Every structure is written in C-alpha cells, then in structure tokens.
Simulated scan of single mutants.
Amino acid sequence: MSTKSNPVITLKGAHTAIAAAEARAKEIGVPMNIAVLDSACHLVAFSRMDGAKITSINIAIDKAFTAAGHRAPTSVYKEAVWPGGPAFSIWNSNGGRFLTIAGGVPIMQDGVVVGAIGCSTGTPSQDEDVAKKGVEAVEKTLKPRMKL
C-alpha cells in the first residue's frame, strides 16, 4: 500500500510570510493581524501588530481558514454572495468561519495549496494587498517537489 502526502507550509515559511506582510502593512501605515494556516486549516503562526484591531484577530484566522480550505482567495466571492447570488449565505458554513471578505490568500507549491495567509484590520483591498506580499515572499522560497 502506498500513501501520498501533500506538502504543508513550515513554521519557517510561515514566519517568512508574516515578515513580508508586516513590512507591507508598515509601508501602507495599517497595523494588521496576520494568520498563517497549513493546508489542513490549522494555525501555524500568528502576528498581531501593535495597533491592530482586537476584533480582527479571528477574522484574519478565518480568512486564512477559508483560503486554505477552499483553495481560493477570499476575494473571489465578492459578487457571488449577494442575495440571489450562487453562493448567498455561504458564510454560514463551517460553523460561521467561512469568510467572503478579501484578505485571505492561499500559498501554493507546484499547484498545490500548502497553506494560506489571512490579514485583517484595514479595508478589504488593504488586507488583500498585505496578504499577497506575504504569499509572494514565501512562494519565492519554496522549491519544486520531486515527482515520485
């Protein structure tokens, strides 16, 4: 019997993502809550910058949860979640953790989701901008996996 394992983000990778996201948040002047989850939606690392909104802690975590678990940025749901839309009320799924606000972005390696980053405190576009900087930084460090 053979098993196949999927890659997951490491703590070092999570710290790389957080450092880049924090740097971008400082550039735009918006302190953030930044969460990195693995591909199984478990928290790997978290940062609450000085001045980040306390009420945004769980939002950042749940944005990463949504991006990792659904393997898509949370921003893709913007048009689909309005009343009458194909994904209306999806936010009620997964115990209310499914977030459709921009700021959650998956981290990919060889086309496979290895984790996700979620950012919250700013506007949705600021949150997504900061999250993307974290993703870009960590994806640069990931090496292609050997095919078995």
Rank of each mutant, 00 (worst) to 15 (best):
I117H: 12
A52S: 14
R48F: 01
A20Q: 08
M146K: 10
P106L: 11
D38T: 07
I34R: 03
M1T: 14
D38E: 07
A52G: 02
L43T: 09
R97N: 15
H70V: 10
V36W: 02
W91G: 14
H70W: 15
S2Q: 13
V30K: 15
K78R: 13
D62A: 03
P86N: 01
G96E: 08
T100A: 04
I57C: 01
P31Q: 03
A137R: 07
G104Q: 10
S125D: 15
E136R: 06
S56G: 15
G69Y: 06
P7S: 06
D38Q: 04
T100F: 01
N94Y: 01
S89V: 06
T74F: 02
D110F: 06
S120R: 10
E79K: 08
A14E: 06
N58F: 02
A102I: 11
R71V: 07
A45H: 12
E79L: 04
Q126I: 08
K53L: 15
V138G: 05
H42G: 00
A19F: 01
G134N: 07
R97D: 03
F65T: 09
A137V: 08
P106T: 11
K133C: 13
S47D: 06
N6H: 11
A60M: 07
G134W: 04
V114S: 08
L43Q: 12
G96Y: 06
G103W: 06
M146L: 10
I18E: 02
K147F: 04
V114G: 04
M49I: 04
G69L: 08
S120F: 10
G115E: 09
S5K: 14
A21K: 05
S93P: 00
K133F: 12
M1A: 15
I117W: 12
R145C: 01
F65E: 02
Y77W: 14
M32P: 00
S2G: 03
N58G: 13
K63R: 13
K53C: 04
M146S: 07
V135E: 02
C119G: 13
M49K: 03
A25M: 09
F46C: 01
R97C: 07
K12H: 12
P31D: 00
W91F: 06
